[in-house]
Design a protein around this nucleic acid. Structure first.
Length: 489
RNA sequence: CGGGGCGUAGCGCAGUCUGGUAGCGCGUCUGCCUUGGGCGCAGAAGGUCGUCGGUUCGAAUCCGGCCGCCCCGACCA
C-alpha cells in the first residue's frame, strides 16, 4: 500500500537522542545538555528558569561545602527582606546608577498603586538593606567585626538571559562584613577570595585566575573588586566569584558608625562577596563532554549507579540482592549511590542515560558477573571500564572517584595553561584565543577599544603574575603590568 | 529598542507557495517480547494549527492587526 509519491518515512529517531557536539555548536550543546540532563528548564517567565532536582542537588552540594567554609572563617547566616525601599538603593550614587536599569520595581500592592517614595525594588543585591541593619547593630568597637552571610535569591532584569549563566532571578550567597579598620576589611576581602579559589580548585576541579578587576569592571559602590576567572572549554572566560572591598562608602550613606576605644565616632570598613548558581554553568562548561554532563565526584548528586542486568526473575533475584548489599556498603563509605532495578529499560539505554546525567561511576552487575564474583566499573570522564572482584568493588569505586576528581582538575588546568598566552602585538590579539596576558595603559579608552575592536574584555590583574612595566599592546603608552584579556560570558 | 527568523500533539518538525477540514518521528499509555551500549511487534490516547478580525461556499494555508518566543546587536560585577 506504500505510495511511491509519498516522502520516505524519516529516519529512526536515534539522531535526536544525541547532543549537538561541542565542536559543532558549543552554545547549542550547552543548552541541550542543561535540558537533557534534567538540570533546568526554561519557564514561562522570560529569563527565569526552573531548577530541576538533578540541578538543584548540585547547588545543595555546593551550598553545603561553601557554608562550611564560611562558618569556619567565622561567618553567621542571616536573612534580609527581598524587597528594598527604592530610596535605599539611591543612597549610594554609583550603586544606583549602575543597578537602576536592571532592577524590578514593585509599584502596586494591596490592590493599589504605591505612591512615589513608597515603592520597593526586588533586591538585585543587598548591600543597602543590610547596611540599614548594620547601622542599628553597631555601636561600639566591641561589636566588630560583624561577619554575615545570606543565602538568597536576587533579581536582575537581564536583557539576554542564558540558563544558569545569566538568569533574571538567580540563587546566590552574599557575604557582608563590617570591620574597625581598613586593613581588616582588605584582609577579609582577600580571605574570602581565597575561599572561593579553594572551593573552585578542590571541589569544582576548576582552576581559576585570581586577581583585581579594573576600575570600570568593579562593583558599583566598591573601592576595589577582586575576582576568580575560569576558562570554559570554548576558551571563553567566566567570572566565577567576586569579593569587594567597599571601604566606607555604604557606611557613610547609612551612617554606620561605631565608637572607638578612644571615644571617637568612626565609620566601619566593609566588604561583600558572592557566588551564584552561575557556578553550575561553570561546572558544566568546564568538564562535560559530547555524551553529556560530567560532574566532579565531590559535587555529584549521584557518584555511583549500580545497574542490575538479567532477564528472568531467577537471574535478577540474586543480582538484585548483591546490588543492594554493595549499595549499602558503598553508602557506609560515604558514596552517594543509586541502584537501578528498572526492568522496563534495557542496559544500553541506562548507560547512555546516566552518562547524560553525569553520574560519575557505573557498576554493571549481571548473572555472568555474579557467576565469576565480579562486576564491571565504568568511569564517566574517560569511559574506562574495568572488571573488579565483588569484594573490592566499593573500595575500588572510592579510589576511582578520587582519581576522577584529580583527573578532571588536571585536564582543566592543562587546558587553561595551553590557552594562556603572553601577547605583545595587535596581530596576536587577533589570532590568539584564550587568556591573553597583555600590557595595557590603564585607560578606559583603551579598555573600550579591546572590546570594540577585538571582542576582548579585561578579566582581572592576576596576583600570581610578576608585574613588570612595559608598553601597552595597543597604544604603546607605559603599562604597569599585564592584565588578562579574554572573550567572556 | 534596531536587524533577522519562528509560532501546527508533551518535544522536534512536515503540510502554507498552488485554500477542500491535519500528518510524521520521538515521547507517553496498554499488551506481548526483550535486557552485557539508546531492543522489537501490535494497538491506543493526545491538536479550538499563537490570537483577533477580514476575504471565501470552504482558511493551518490568502490579507491585516495584536501577542509571544528564538537568534544577532545595543545592555550585562
Amino acid at each position: 500500500m506504500a505510495d511511491p509519491q509519498k516522502p520516505q518515512t524519516p529516519k529512526k529517531g536515534n539522531d535526536n537522542l544525541k547532543l549537538p557536539t561541542r565542536a559543532d555548536d558549543f552554545s547549542e550543546w550547552y543548552i541541550q545538555l542543561v535540558k537533557r540532563a534534567k538540570l533546568a528548564d526554561n519557564s514561562d517567565v522570560r529569563g527565569s528558569m526552573v531548577i530541576r532536582p538533578n540541578g538543584y542537588a548540585i547547588w545543595e552540594n555546593m551550598q553545603q561545602v561553601l557554608d562550611g567554609m564560611f562558618k569556619d572563617t567565622g561567618h553567621q547566616n542571616a536573612y534580609f527582606p527581598v524587597l528594598i525601599p527604592e530610596s535605599y538603593l539611591a543612597k549610594e550614587k554609583k550603586h544606583v546608577a549602575d543597578f537602576a536599569p536592571q532592577v524590578a520595581v514593585v509599584t502596586h500592592a494591596g490592590g493599589k498603586p504605591l505612591p512615589e517614595g513608597e515603592r520597593y525594588v526586588i533586591r538585585p543585591t543587598s548591600e543597602t538593606i543590610i547596611n540599614r541593619s548594620f547601622t542599628n547593630w553597631v555601636q561600639s568597637y566591641r561589636d566588630l567585626p560583624i561577619l554575615i552571610n545570606q543565602w538568597a535569591n536576587v533579581m536582575r532584569w537581564e536583557m539576554r538571559p542564558r540558563l544558569f549563566l545569566r538568569t533574571t532571578e538567580f540563587l546566590w550567597q552574599e557575604g557582608h562584613t563590617c570591620h574597625a579598620t581598613e586593613a581588616e576589611a582588605t584582609e577579609e576581602t582577600l580571605r574570602m577570595l581565597d575561599v572561593y579559589e579553594r572551593f573552585a580548585v578542590d571541589y569544582m576541579a576548576m582552576p581559576v585566575i585570581k586577581g583585581q578587576k579594573t576600575e570600570s569592571e568593579k562593583f558599583p559602590g566598591a573601592v576595589s573588586t577582586y575576582s576568580i576567572e575560569a576558562m570554559m572549554q570554548d576558551k571563553k572566560a567566566l567570572q566565577a566569584g567576586t569579593s569587594h572591598m567597599l571601604g566606607q562608602n555604604f557606611a557613610k550613606m547609612f551612617d554606620t558608625q561605631y565608637q572607638s576605644k578612644e571615644g571617637t565616632k568612626e565609620y566601619v570598613w566593609q566588604t561583600s562577596w558572592g557566588v551564584s548558581t552561575r557556578l553550575i554553568g561553570a561546572l558544566i562548561m568546564t568538564h562535560s563532554d559530547d555524551a553529556g554532563l560530567v560532574v566532579p565526584p565531590k559535587l555529584a548528586p549521584t557518584q555511583l549507579v549500580i545497574i542490575i542486568i538479567g532477564k528472568t526473575p531467577e537471574e535478577r533475584g540474586p543480582v538484585r540482592e548483591k546490588a543492594h548489599a554493595l549499595a549499602a556498603e558503598a553508602k557506609k563509605q560515604g558514596i552517594r549511590v543509586l541502584v537501578d532495578d528498572d526492568e522496563t529499560k534495557g542496559p544500553g539505554f541506562k548507560y547512555a542515560e546516566y552518562e547524560l546525567r553525569g553520574v560519575c561511576l557505573r557498576a554493571e552487575l549481571g548473572p555472568k558477573d555474579l557467576a565469576q564474583n565480579q562486576a564491571v566499573l565504568a568511569r564517566r570522564d574517560n569511559k574506562a571500564k574495568e572488571t573488579v572482584s565483588l569484594d573490592a568493588v566499593v573500595s575500588r569505586a572510592g579510589q576511582l572517584l578520587e582519581e576522577m576528581q584529580q583527573a578532571l582538575y588536571d585536564a582543566a588546568k592543562q587546558r587553561m595553561t595551553d590557552n594562556t598566552f603572553e601577547v605583545n602585538s595587535v596581530e596576536e590579539l587577533k589570532t590568539k584565543d584564550g587568556f591573553l596576558l597583555a600590557h595595557w595603559d590603564g585607560t578606559p579608552e583603551t579598555e573600550k577599544r579591546f572590546k570594540d575592536e577585538f571582542g576582548l574584555t579585561t578579566r582581572n590583574r592576576p596576583f600570581d603574575l610578576t608585574q613588570e612595566p612595559g608598553t601597552c599592546v595597543l597604544t604603546g603608552a607605559p603599562s604597569p603590568g599585564r592584565i588578562v584579556l579574554a572573550k567572556a560570558y
